[in-house]
Structure formats: C-alpha cells, structure tokens
Amino acid sequence: MISNSSDTEPSFIKPQGATMRSEVRVIKLVLAGWFLAIVGFQLFAYLLEANYSALLLTDLTFFNLPIQFWLTGQLLPLWFVILCVIFNLWMDRHTIQSSEGSLRFRIKAKTGEDE
C-alpha cells in the first residue's frame, strides 16, 4: 500500500522498482543528449560569431551550407530521430527481457523448482 508520505511514492526524481528505475535512467540519458545538442550547437555558433565574427562562420561550410545552418537545420532534427530510435530499441529490448523474466518465474513456480 502507498503511504501518505510522498517520499515512498515513485516519481521521476525518485523512481521505484526495477522497471521504472531503468526506464527513467534511459529517459534521462536521452534528454541529456537532446538538451546538450540543442544548447551546445547554439553556444558553438554564438561563440564563433562573438570571437571570430563572420569570417570563420563564412568559411566553415558543409554542402555549401554555413556550418550553423547545417548543424541546426539539418543535423539536429536528424539527431532527434536517432535519439528516438535509440530510446525505442532500448524500450523494446527491455520489454522483451521483462516478459522473459516473468515467464521464467511462472514456469519455475509451476514446476515447483524454487520451492
């Protein structure tokens, strides 16, 4: 039973149980990758502009696109897709492992091996 104290309840900050803990761990990793890429690319462009003006940003191109256009407009959306694929693959694997674990437990209990 859940007590009235919020300390014992599962939350994003304090996940409980193996399933939730591992799920929250991978969510935090994905969100870290998401946040760092967004902030990092903009800080990179900002610092280049602040320190070297347009000269370096003009010369740095990828497929003729200025580097900040390519990083933000092309790579970041692709990175989001990759992050989502990684998350889904992990979740799929985790779901299969969980269901296999519970199946093993049920088989053992039925045959009485763990008694």
């Binding site: 462009a45 900002y46 502009e49 003006s53 347009a54 940003l57 003009t58 191109t61 990828f62 497929f63 003729n64 696109l65 200025p66 900040q68 256009f69 390519w70 092309q74």
Partner: peptide, 23 residues
C-alpha cells in the same frame, strides 16, 4: 535540402547579404 546552400553563398558573395552571423 542541401542544394540551397549555394544560394546562400551567392547572396553573400554577389549581393553582400550576410547570413553567417546568426545572432
């Protein structure tokens, strides 16, 4: 999606329109 990069270069080199200062 990549091809339009050449337009940015042309705008910059021939018409002085600088897209390279994002902020």
């Amino acid at each position: 999606q990549f091809g339009y990069g050449e337009a940015i270069t042309e705008l910059q080199q021939q018409f002085g329109l600088n897209w390279s200062e994002p902020f």
